[in-house]
Design a protein around this nucleic acid. Structure first.
Lengths: 209, 209, 209, 209
DNA sequence: CATGAATGAGTCTTCATTCAT
DNA sequence: AATGAATGAAGACTCATTCAT
């Protein structure tokens, strides 16, 4: 599906507002107003508010899949290196596209719309399958444990990152870093998160005791 | 704040519906109807829909704090045992009160209402401080690492549990356990989650290499 | 179903406007405005615009059925007298409740809403059955023909009256009676229509050649 | 006014939809979509939705007038034969062009648009005048009654046919002819209607007692 | 000549809240 | 103390029409 500039403009505005206020908390009036377009354009372009949400998911998701798969298939890295890259990749993406990831959380917690939930699950399933391959490869090479619960592992990755992302302000306040510039703070967080999660994954994946 | 039976009835209905459909996706009409009370009662008792949400948070949170603090202060257990008990306590609570925890996620992801977000943060802060004591105690006794990022650790606990809770159906489908009875499935999940997170915490907290 | 004064007020306004402008040509805004009530009241009282239409039909129809049946069962009149009374009864009703009868025509010509059409047909069917009894009685007594197509007969009654009602202005203009007072004109029409249709029915029902 | 193929295509689609759903119940979008033309074409070709309706009336009416007048002026038939032919002609036309006749009923019942109503009345007036000549001729020849109300007579013709046309399904159900093929059913109806109305007209027009 | 894009006004309905009782 | 009736505001969406291309 090809998207015009105006459609992308609408989608990006919707993404921000859906993340900030939730789907039901955002009116098409608000979206249209902030995107600088006529209210009728949302229905005109996307059919409905729900279809707009679906278009938004598809648009963001479409760009993700290619990067993950190509990263996995690269033969220059060891399984453990690949896992680490995956972690960094996910953290980067989550921090950079915070609104989108917040929406993904919303979609899952409020499983009101089956179509949207299904779309979200499809993405998760595809990613899970790709990573399952990576795990198997590591197990075959003897560097990973034999018993690994893939879903829990991914839940820890996604859950920890999401939880951290959702409580950035809280973290700042708790550590007294209210004065640190945004960019510097985000860099710090990303670095710390990376180390933290890699430590966790090492414990889950490898036999080191 | 004293709550009458009817007020609790309303709050419990609201909790379920807010979790299922989100705050904005739930109408006062729905709550009143499902709680079997008059529509005007919500405003009459709580002032407004938002105030009802605040009352709901306060009500659930009030019962939590006592249990956590008393558990920590118990001298019969070692720091590592206490941490493990804390993990199980949290998993149990999250699985048992899923609606409430879903609401907590919603509140954090959609930081629309400052008053509500503030209330949620207060709880987190109090818990964090109590657990910080526990960590310090473990460090003093030499069983815990010196460098521990408390918030990330809690983010992993809360995030992993939430993410797992929000994707129970997905997990079921992925593992082909659609036919397992609900109760048995929940027990399995809780047990697996417990082992998983304890493994993670051991890696974060202790020096075992 | 009991109707409050305000509900009747709304229904009567709706009846007039639906007759004047058609169902789709009438907005709930218009109805509410002309009835002097809040816009939301239509949905509040009747659920929707369509339900309002159904309520309107039921309300008007409810008062009709009793009169027709009791008239038929009266033993003091001969079949031919009863038929004549039925004709006058119908003409009177149609002229007095013109808006309602116009709506009935609209409903039948634009069979968009199955529920409403069904309701209208139910009325017609019930009337047809009652009159069928009357015809049979006349045939048994030897005053009516043996071969009578009930539906066509009723179509002539209803169709002629409706067509006349719908073109009152045209009739006036054609006969140069633009200056006659409304009331006098209506009386003239009713009298002429009565003679006209009774002549028709005599030809259909009786053997007089 | 010359009409291109595309314009006729639009008009015919509009005719069908106006008949099925009413004028206000039909959107320009629907017409354009079902006619397979661009949405903007209706405004482009006809100026507006109302103008399209006027064009539709003019288009259909134009083809009618010639046939009626020529039939009347034919000297080979007696007045009574001419009346009978007129009845059959009208029945045929009504059954064949049901959509158009339904629209004519709609226009008259919902006299919202004066321009359209006026156009419809012009046709009726012209027909009435032609038939008035026929009646006078019959009266001069002594085969028709002296006192005949032309308008009521025409109202019976048009009203009976319209009412029958609008309730074809009801008639079918009432007489248990749901399984009869459409074409056969229409033929039966036309034949019965013809006999029915000719009986009526004989009673109105001639002295046979 | 024809049309895709765009729009302001309008549609019906639902919302949370208030108020008289 | 409790509630049924009522409402203004806002909800998402569709409308007929216009205009630049």
């Amino acid at each position: 599906m090809e998207l015009t500039d105006k459609q992308i403009q609408i989608i990006e505005t919707a993404e921000r507002l859906f993340a900030e206020r939730g789907f039901d908390g955002t009116s098409v009036r608000d979206i249209a107003h902030e995107a600088g377009v006529n209210i009728a354009m949302i229905s005109y372009y996307f059919g409905s508010k729900e279809k707009l949400m679906e278009a938004l998911l598809e648009w963001r998701v479409g760009s993700i899949k290619i990067r993950v798969e190509s990263l996995i298939q690269d033969d220059r890295y060891s399984p453990i290196e690949k896992v680490n890259m995956l972690i960094d990749e996910h953290i980067d993406r989550a921090m950079q596209k915070q609104p989108f990831h917040k929406i993904m959380v919303s979609v899952q917690v409020t499983n009101k719309n089956p179509a949207i939930l299904k779309a979200a699950n499809k993405v998760k399933l595809r990613n899970a399958k790709v990573i399952a391959e990576l795990i198997k490869d590591g197990q075959k090479k003897g560097v990973f444990k034999k018993k690994i619960d893939l879903i829990f592992m991914l839940n820890t990755l996604v859950g920890t990152v999401n939880q951290s992302m959702m409580s950035l302000d809280y973290y700042r306040e708790f550590n007294g870093q209210m004065d640190m510039p945004d960019e510097a703070f985000q860099l710090t967080i990303k670095r710390k998160l990376s180390i933290h999660i890699k430590t966790l994954f090492k414990a889950i994946l490898t036999n080191e005791s």
